[in-house]
Design a protein around this nucleic acid. Sequence first.
DNA 1: GATGGTGGTGGGAACGTTCCCATTCGCAGG
DNA 2: CCTGCGAATGGGAACGTTCCCACCACCATC
Lengths: 338, 338
Amino acid sequence: MGATRRPTIKTVAARAGVGRTTVSRVLNGSPLVSDEARAAVQAAIAELGYVPNSVARSLVTSRTDSIALVVPESESRLGSEPYFSAVIRGVSNALAGTQIQLLLTLVRDRRELDQLTRFLAARRVDGVLLVSVHRDDPLPGLLEELGLPTVLAGRRSPAESLNHVHSDNVGGARAAVRHLLERGRSGIATIAGPLDMDVGNSRLRGWREALRDAGRKVDESLVEPADFTEEGGRSAMRALLERHPGLDAVFAASDVMAAGALAELRGHGRRVPDDVAVVGFDDSIVARHTDPPLTSVRQPVEEIGRTITELLLREIEAPGSARHHVVLPTSLVVRDST
Amino acid sequence: MGATRRPTIKTVAARAGVGRTTVSRVLNGSPLVSDEARAAVQAAIAELGYVPNSVARSLVTSRTDSIALVVPESESRLGSEPYFSAVIRGVSNALAGTQIQLLLTLVRDRRELDQLTRFLAARRVDGVLLVSVHRDDPLPGLLEELGLPTVLAGRRSPAESLNHVHSDNVGGARAAVRHLLERGRSGIATIAGPLDMDVGNSRLRGWREALRDAGRKVDESLVEPADFTEEGGRSAMRALLERHPGLDAVFAASDVMAAGALAELRGHGRRVPDDVAVVGFDDSIVARHTDPPLTSVRQPVEEIGRTITELLLREIEAPGSARHHVVLPTSLVVRDST
DNA sequence: GATGGTGGTGGGAACGTTCCCATTCGCAGG
DNA sequence: CCTGCGAATGGGAACGTTCCCACCACCATC
């Protein structure tokens, strides 16, 4: 009882008593088919349980009907950051109506980068979504060279030449710091993100601008960059406390780093928010469960995922149509840490 | 300056002064090629920047070199549960050495299920990883019917017929409850997972067995199932407190539900762990940041991801080789909630 | 009644591989 | 000197589609 081989378009054509081409036309919804022919073909398809071979189709159309979501990140992050899950959800939502499949590629080291390069050069996807880009990331340049439709979540620098989408990091950070100022805080430090990423720089810039707008002097020794991890947030907090024992507020560029800061503050006997107020960024699940719950800047991560996907689909449909740059709004969610 | 079309195997053959087949042999590492021919081909490949067209290859080999990770889950979960991220990381790790690509498919509703069904029937992947299976999930049966290599993370029931991997849910739950008993607690309730999932049932069974082993009477009104969400954990806790105002311990089948329970307990003025001790399951990032930090059952989620992938690759290589069933160990991480 | 457009149709070629088979060459063995 | 064999090679066919083009029948138009 060997499994009979899958029916092809020829089998269907024979069964329906029409030519190969007519079957193809029915499959692709061409209007140039008589009603009888269409009915016969559809009946044959149903009887045979025919499913088109998309590989064969790809070969001739040179479309793969799939896109890649590339996450060039040391493995530590995908775990700790709800960010990626939310992006994935947004992407998947945007793809739901289409026939397009999502490939997920984690790039952790040089070897995986080379492998991805070959993969992209072979055009095994129609387009690429790139998430969490670093300033000197080789991938965006490569994609530009290959001429593969690409959209970034984030950007290499404010002068980004590729299509990209990001949230209003500067505005969000400003709102956070303004909120701390309104609460009467005067010694406001910041745990910045990695400075080789635009997110890191932009949120830091927001901190600076808010202070400047309020007529405060900007003391650069109140800045301590970290790597978006909890442990990084902890040691940044430690360094800040050493330099400025009298600080009374911290703006952390991510919730996870803020959580690390909270732990460190507790270790030093500082009460939050009484002695030190803390604001995070992301408004992730972590923010709701820290002790005390974190005031945080909400960014619409899922919407970022949806938007980059929509832009990419448009770019695939009409390549080189236009450079798109979308900025999504943030909002401040106030909880008990301020 | 129109982009010159990609070189094919024919171009390479001409350039190297050999036949198509010889190039193919070099590409596939056949030993039946002379050293000179091989060198000439490799030179030509390098000069032309030739990259094999994997779609054409797929057409003839009928292998796609990709597998799908299917997450049949209402969208609320992928976000809140670090579980999925960890699985993905494990899968990606196991795939790192291979040429195999990972497709991520979220199945949220009937329409997406139909779409996936067609996709799988078209054999657009070589195998499928299925995560978070419900008892009456149609997908496992479909996959069995299609004869597509499949491995489950979790199982439909203890009698699962497909290859599957899961952690020792019963043992983990037993350890949690035993720990509560050792702490001198006597009114131990449980917020169970969904009872249409084996994880839910197994963890509940562990709760029952631990009580029985200790010679306690098992009071079924101390059981309240929920849906693995925070809000679900909250209302389950509320129901339990109503029925048993005197309970002094809760075992929740997930950290997220435990976090909901903590919030509800706080609302009722109960102190944790003084009045009520709480244990979670997963040892996710959430457990470390709740107030107080959660005692939790750790399960090796990343390893689950790695293992299901390894099994799947083996199954693809040698179909029907054997039914595999792997159980991975859990361990208890004690923090301040007990 | 020739002309020409138009809706419907089907066969051939092409997409870029791999696999099967036939062919060539050199060399050992009788 | 013929035979046989294995290593190296290349051409044809096949994989299952889509697209181009040719064709036919029909009807409207001049």
